[in-house]
Write a protein that binds this DNA or RNA. Structure first.
Lengths: 129, 129
DNA sequence: CTTGAGCTTCCAGTAACTGGAAGGCCTATA
DNA sequence: TATAGGCCTTCCAGTTACTGGAAGCTCAAG
């Protein structure tokens, strides 16, 4: 299979697929013309990567998850630990954004947003006191 | 004022302050020895930038906000628009992360996390069906 | 005078791609 | 057969907002 077909099948852009090869996540065969020739296993890995990335796992995490996936005898505990770590990080991000959202929403609500120069948003940015 | 004092006063690392000068956000004077010499206005701008960045505004947004801040006759509507746009983006991020969190939490809950190789997290990543 | 801290510039690296250029390959149509 | 286009290849550069480190100058204290 050529890269274009794989891109269509997995939803990953060709550029991303080449990048994944660059960093050693996949190793597709090459045809006589130099084109990449993707096997079913390659497709599976790419789909796996696409879903992992969509869940927000870093490439480093994906690399580990992929290795664990390919190791049929691995313990699920390892996978769970990575996923839980990631979950905790998502929680931290949500908490941070939520707090930030509160502050910003408060400022926006206080700003008249008309033609007058008086602006509590800028006032707050200029002086937090 | 030297960069170190400004860094202590604003909480921004010296590297970041130099970077802000590089990209034209500030223009501190230079002393005879080549050292940057920050004025009170420079300090104010840096503090403004620090708070804007802490609220998650991009550098591009900060540049505009700073210009608006320095333009005493500007209309608050412009500022409010930027802040509202940013707020909307934060909401999108929170929504995305929350959805992702739900999926991941579900998978984590289903995984035994013991020494057995059976792992619903990997199974789900391998095949979304 | 030396020592150490602080300042300078410049180069490179981070995460995960993305865009674009230059050029080879493949297929279909005139 | 020529050519047009679409797909493929590689390589280089840019993105965001810094951050780390090296080489070297300056300043203040002892």
């Amino acid at each position: 299979m050529n890269i274009g077909e794989v891109a269509d099948a997995t939803g990953l852009p060709p550029k991303t697929i080449r990048y994944y090869e660059d960093i050693g996540l996949i190793r597709p065969r090459r045809g006589a013309n130099g084109y990449r020739d993707f096997s079913g296993a390659d497709m599976h890995k790419l789909a796996f990567l696409g879903r992992s990335r969509a869940l927000g796992f870093s490439i480093a995490d994906c690399r580990i998850l992929l290795a664990l996936y390919e190791d049929k005898g691995r313990a699920s505990a390892e996978v769970k630990e990575i996923a839980q770590g990631h979950l905790a990080e998502i929680d931290r991000k949500i908490a941070g954004l939520t707090e930030l959202r509160g502050t910003l929403a408060h400022l926006v609500a206080e700003c008249a947003g008309d033609s007058r120069p008086d602006c509590p948003i800028l006032a707050s940015l200029a002086d937090a006191s």
